[in-house]
C-alpha cells in the first residue's frame, strides 16, 4: 500500500488539470444558488438532496470520467506495469471519491452556515456520506468497464438511474404500492437516501442499522465479485485486445 498516497495525490492533480474539479465546483455553486431560494422546513428537506446527489450521481460521473481519460490516453497500461497493485489502483479511486464528497460536505455546510446560519449533525452526516460514496464509486467503476466511450458511459449511467432510482420516485408519488415500496430499501439510491435523510428526518433506527450494514456488505460484494475479478479483463481490453 506504499503507492496509495502518490496515487491519491496524482488523481487529485489530474482532477484539477482535466478541469473535473472545476465542473464539480460549478455544480456546487448551482446548489448553493438553489439553497438561497429555500427557508425553514423546506431548506431542511432540500439540503440532504444535495448531499445525496453529490455522493451518488456525481461520484459515478467523476469516477467514470477519470477512468475514461485513463483509457483514452492508455495511461492505465503504464500504471499497470509499475509496482502499483490492482487493489491500490482501485482503492485510490474510491478514496478520492470519498474525499471529494467530504469536500462537498465542507463547502455546502460552510455556505449554509454563512448564508442561512444553518448547521447539521455532522456526526450523522459524515459516516453516511462515506458509505454511500464508497458504494457508488464502485458502481461507477463497474459501469465504466462496459463503456466504450464517454457517451456509452453516460448511457450506462442513465440506465442505472432508470432501473434503480425511478422505483423510489414512483413509490414517493404513490405509483408503486406501499407494500412493495418497503422492499425498495435494497436499491442503493433508496437506502442511500434513507441514511442521508436521517440528517433532517426521523428515521427508524432499524433502517439505519440495516442501511449501514447493507451498504458495507454490498461494497464488499461489489469489490470482491464484480470489480476486482473483471479488472484484469478491463485492462486487457484497454491494452488493445
Amino acid at each position: 500500500m506504499d503507492r496509495l498516497l502518490p496515487l491519491v495525490k496524482g488523481e487529485f492533480d489530474r482532477l484539477n488539470k482535466y478541469n473535473l474539479f472545476t465542473a464539480n465546483f460549478v455544480v456546487l455553486l448551482l446548489w448553493v444558488g438553489m439553497v438561497s431560494f429555500f427557508e425553514g422546513a423546506e431548506l431542511k428537506m432540500f439540503v440532504p438532496v444535495i448531499f445525496l446527489m453529490d455522493s451518488t450521481m456525481m461520484t459515478i460521473l467523476l469516477v467514470g470520467a477519470t477512468l475514461f481519460y485513463e483509457k483514452q490516453e492508455h495511461t492505465m497500461n503504464s500504471i499497470m506495469v509499475s509496482p502499483v497493485t490492482e487493489d491500490e489502483y482501485l482503492l485510490s479511486k474510491v478514496i478520492v471519491s470519498v474525499l471529494n464528497s467530504l469536500i462537498t460536505v465542507v463547502f455546502i455546510s460552510a455556505a449554509l452556515y454563512f448564508i442561512k446560519g444553518v448547521t447539521y449533525n455532522y456526526l450523522l452526516l459524515i459516516p453516511a456520506i462515506i458509505v454511500v460514496t464508497v458504494v457508488h464509486s464502485m458502481i461507477g467503476i463497474r459501469l465504466s468497464y462496459h463503456a466504450k466511450s464517454f457517451s456509452s458511459l453516460l448511457v450506462n449511467f442513465m440506465v442505472y438511474i432508470f432501473v434503480f432510482l425511478l422505483p423510489t420516485v414512483f413509490a414517493t408519488i404513490g405509483i408503486i404500492d406501499e407494500k412493495i415500496a418497503k422492499y425498495l430499501i435494497v436499491l442503493p439510491p433508496d437506502v442511500s437516501n434513507i441514511l442521508i435523510s436521517a440528517l433532517a428526518l426521523d428515521v427508524e433506527p432499524w433502517k439505519l442499522v440495516f442501511g449501514y450494514t447493507y451498504l458495507t456488505v454490498l461494497s464488499f460484494i461489489l469489490y470482491r465479485f464484480m470489480i476486482k475479478p473483471k479488472f484484469n479483463e478491463y485492462v486487457m481490453r484497454e491494452t488493445g485486445v
Binding site: K17, Y69, E73
Partner: peptide, 21 residues
C-alpha cells in the same frame, strides 16, 4: 503507442510515475 497524461506536462508525468518506485 504514446502513453502520457495529456493535460500534465512532461515533467509532471515523469514525477507522478517516479513516486511509484
Amino acid at each position: 503507442m504514446p502513453i502520457s497524461f495529456s493535460k500534465l506536462t512532461a515533467m509532471e508525468n515523469l514525477e507522478f510515475f517516479k513516486k511509484l518506485y
